[in-house]
Nucleic acid binder design. Structure first.
Length: 422
RNA sequence: GUGAGCGUGGUCAAGUGGUUAAGACGCCAGGUUGUGGCCCUGGAGAUCGAGGGUUCGAAUCCCUUCGCUCACCCCA
């Protein structure tokens, strides 16, 4: 038997309510801030992510789905949304549009990882990007979009963490200071941190091993090493967040996995301890567009894991709204009635009412049982008696009441009966 | 890449060496010669993940393998 590939999952009909809910809230929130939707291809030139995300990141080093197509092109299934959007911005000359350009997307992303709770090989991201404006009001806006979205779906008790990791001007010196600090304690570092010290020094800060905690505790803070411009940006951001009433916490240990981040980084996590908890991660990437061949252009955005949002909705027992529209099952008895049922169901659908024909070769009782099972609101019954009289029976399944109707008036009757609302 | 736990009908799940592998939900039928949701009765549906071994006898013990889950790494 075939199974869905490891790390992938079917989203079954019972689950779709959550997805429809999240997607529509994402669209509503993003458009209310003036963002416009963009869809980029599922796969891109493999080099885009090497350049954009960073050659030495785990994602590019060992997590991409990369393959050669039949024409010999090397392609990669998108592992994240920012680099493709920046590519599109450049390819379509969006730098000539009024700046800044605000874009959002909802799309799947792929990473070859060992799956676990909240992490799979195909996940879905709601993301936004603002290109062409480096002011801190944009940073605050992007964070606000994430925060408002999460509120709109009903998640509460979330924690918003922010930090600034400086830019090309000031970060190198900070990293040197950080490494110096760590080298003084190299004796007690865990295995991973010994590696990180040379390979990915910023990552030293979010090591979870107990023995490394004292070293982290004494580590210098990146915000204390910001150059004047970055420092001004940083305090401006905090001022705007405060003014907007967003309850942020400065986390000096917050760093992010992509090479392209500059200045602001942020994430939102739920209050549960554990591992794969980050719901939203984002930050500023003022060097990325240039890295991809454009002129220097500031940018900032976030990626949000919809799968993780839904995980938390379930954890907090937030149910998506239910939609219950009129749905008619046309039950039939006998060959002549069966043919009539097919025609009648078709007519109902064309008039805009969901309708389906009862399962053939079954008794009326079975057909009505089926009607209940699929949440039909009404049943139409056609048998020899009705055919002879030129009527059909319309049964309201929620009220258990029925009456005969002229088939030509059926659409009208159903409309006046209406659905049960939401 | 590393570590741990778990694989029994569609789903959940009992069974821990001894005749035809419980039960529940779901599915189908009947109870109502044409009337659902509740209830009652009956039925279908499992080579106990796969392969090998131990044994008179294996779902049960051992080995291998595949899969799933969780955690680490890392990330949404």
């Amino acid at each position: 038997m075939f199974q869905a590939p490891r790390g992938t999952a079917d989203i079954l009909p019972e689950e779709q309510g959550y997805w429809r809910f999240c997607r529509s809230k994402a669209r509503e929130t993003a458009t209310s801030f003036g963002y416009r939707r963009i869809d980029t291809p599922l796969f891109e030139d493999a080099r885009l992510f090497v350049r954009g995300v960073g050659e030495l990141t785990d994602i590019v080093e060992k997590e991409t789905y990369t393959f050669e197509d039949r024409g010999g092109d090397l392609l990669t299934l998108r592992p994240e949304g920012t680099a493709p959007v920046c590519r599109a911005y450049l390819e379509h000359g969006m730098s000539n549009l009024p700046q800044p350009v605000r874009l959002y997307y909802v799309c799947p992303a792929f990473r070859y990882e060992r799956p676990q709770s909240g992490r799979s090989r195909q996940h879905h991201q709601f993301g936004i990007e603002v290109l062409g404006d480096g002011d801190a009001i944009i940073d605050a806006e992007v964070i606000e979009v994430a925060w408002r979205f999460l509120g709109s779906v009903g998640l509460s008790d979330l924690e918003l963490s922010i930090n600034s990791i400086g830019d090309g001007e000031c970060r190198p010196q900070y990293i040197r200071t950080l490494q110096d600090h760590y080298r003084q304690h190299s004796g007690i570092l865990c295995h991973d941190c010994t590696r990180r010290l040379e390979h990915n020094p910023l990552r030293l800060l979010d090591c979870k091993v107990d023995s490394c905690q004292p070293v982290i505790g004494g580590a210098p803070h990146s915000v204390d090493y910001l150059c004047d411009a970055c420092d001004a940006h940083w305090s401006s951001l905090r001022g705007h967040l405060f003014a907007l009433g967003l309850p942020y916490a400065v986390n000096h240990r917050l760093v992010r996995g992509f090479d392209y981040y500059t200045r602001t980084v942020f994430e939102v996590t739920p209050p549960v301890e554990g591992s794969q908890t980050t719901i939203v991660g984002g930050g500023r990437y003022d060097g990325l567009i240039e890295e991809l061949g454009g002129k220097p252009t500031p940018g900032i955005g976030f990626g949000m894991g919809i799968d993780r949002v839904i995980l938390n909705l379930k954890r907090q027992e937030v149910a998506p709204p239910e939609y219950r529209d009129t749905k008619v099952l046309v039950a039939h008895l006998g060959e002549a009635a069966k043919a009539e049922a097919v025609k009648l169901a078709s007519k109902l659908r064309q008039a805009g009412t969901a309708a389906l024909v009862g399962p053939a070769e079954r008794g009326l009782r079975s057909q009505l049982r089926y009607a209940s099972a699929i949440d039909a609101t009404h049943a139409v019954i056609i048998g020899d008696d009705e055919l002879a009289k030129g009527v059909v029976v319309l049964r309201d399944l929620s009220k258990s009441a029925q009456h005969e109707v002229d088939p030509d008036r059926l659409v009208q009757e159903l409309q006046s009966a209406g659905g049960n609302g939401c």
